[in-house]
C-alpha cells in the first residue's frame, strides 16, 4: 500500500514515514507543502492520504476540497492540532474520512491508517480470507488451509494488495505504483521476480491445488481467477476496478 503524507513539520514527517514503512510496510511519499501534496495526489496511485491542516502554500482543508472536487476517492486521514468540534465537523463534511488530534499515538495512527485502507477497498475485517487463503493484516501473516506460509515483506505486500482486489487483473504498473514510493526506481521485472516467488511459496503450502496467483500474459496478475464468487468466505466484495489501469 502506498501512502501520501502531507506534513510541513520535518521531524514529524520523518517519524511518521518511518513508522508507516516499518510497521505495516507501506510505501510512503512525503510532501512538505500543500501544493506539492496536491500535485502528488493527482497521480491517483495512493491508497491513503495523511494530511496535516496547517500547511504552507495550500492548507489542508483546501487540498482536501480540491481532491474531492476531482472525484478522488482516496481515503484521507487528517492530522490536526486545532481544538473544537466545529473544525472537525467542517473537515468531515469536506470529505475527510477520519482525523487524529496532535499529539497522537503512533500505534493509533497506524491502526487508523490500516482501517481506512481496508475500508477504502471494501473490507471490514483485518483478516482477509479467500479460498482457504487467509491474510492477517495485523500480524502480516499468511495461511493457506491453515498452513503458515512464510513470505518476504515485498511478497506479503503484493499478496495483500491482490487479495483486496480478487478476480481483478492487476497490472504490473499498478502494483509498482502501490507498493513503492517515488524514490524507488521502477523496474517491472522486480515485480515479476517477487510474484514468481510468491506463487511458488503459496503453491508449496498446498501442492495439489490450482495456482492461486495467475499471470495474465501482457496484462498483469489475478488472484483466484476462474473461481465462482460465492466461494470466497469472508473476503472483500468483488468490486470492479475504479479506473482503467494502463496495460502492460
Amino acid at each position: 500500500m502506498r501512502v501520501l503524507l502531507v506534513e510541513d513539520e520535518v521531524r514529524l514527517a520523518e517519524n511518521l514515514a518511518a513508522a508507516l514503512r516499518d510497521g505495516p510496510g507501506f510505501a510512503v511519499d512525503w510532501a512538505e507543502d500543500g501544493l506539492t501534496g496536491d500535485d502528488l495526489a493527482g497521480n491517483a496511485c495512493y491508497d491513503l492520504i495523511i494530511l496535516d491542516l496547517m500547511l504552507p502554500k495550500l492548507d489542508g482543508l483546501s487540498l482536501l476540497r480540491r481532491l474531492r472536487a476531482r472525484r478522488d476517492k482516496t481515503p484521507v486521514l487528517i492530522l490536526t492540532a486545532k481544538d473544537g468540534s466545529g473544525s472537525i465537523i467542517q473537515l468531515l463534511n469536506a470529505g475527510a474520512d477520519d482525523y487524529l488530534a496532535k499529539p497522537f499515538d503512533l500505534g493509533e495512527l497506524i491502526a487508523r491508517a490500516k482501517a481506512l485502507i481496508r475500508r477504502g477497498k471494501g473490507a471490514a475485517h483485518p483478516t482477509l480470507s479467500l479460498l482457504g487463503l487467509e491474510v492477517n493484516t495485523l500480524e502480516q501473516s499468511v495461511r493457506r488451509q491453515g498452513v503458515l506460509v512464510d513470505l518476504s515483506p515485498t511478497e506479503y505486500r503484493i499478496l495483500e494488495y491482490l487479495i483486496h482486489r480478487p478476480r481483478v487483473i492487476v497490472s504490473k504498473q499498478e502494483l509498482l505504483e502501490h507498493l513503492y514510493d517515488y524514490n524507488w526506481e521502477h523496474h517491472s521485472n522486480v515485480i515479476e521476480v517477487h510474484v514468481s516467488n510468491l506463487r511458488k511459496k503459496l503453491d508449496a503450502a498446498l501442492p495439489e491445488a490450482d495456482p492461486i496467483v495467475e499471470t495474465m500474459r501482457g496484462r498483469g496478475y489475478r488472484l483466484a481467477a476462474g473461481l465462482p464468487p460465492g466461494l470466497s468466505s469472508s473476503g472483500p466484495d468483488p468490486t470492479p476496478p475504479p479506473t482503467a489501469e494502463p496495460g502492460l
Binding site: 514529524l12 517519524n15 516499518d22 510497521g23 481544538d83 499515538d105
Partner: peptide, 22 residues
C-alpha cells in the same frame, strides 16, 4: 501556541513510539 506546542509534542511522542515499535 497550542498548535506549535502540540506539534512539538507530537514530534517527540512519535519519535519515542517509533523507537519503541520494534
Amino acid at each position: 501556541a497550542a498548535h506549535e506546542l502540540k506539534t512539538a509534542v507530537a514530534v517527540q511522542k512519535s519519535s519515542l513510539q517509533l523507537l519503541n515499535m520494534k
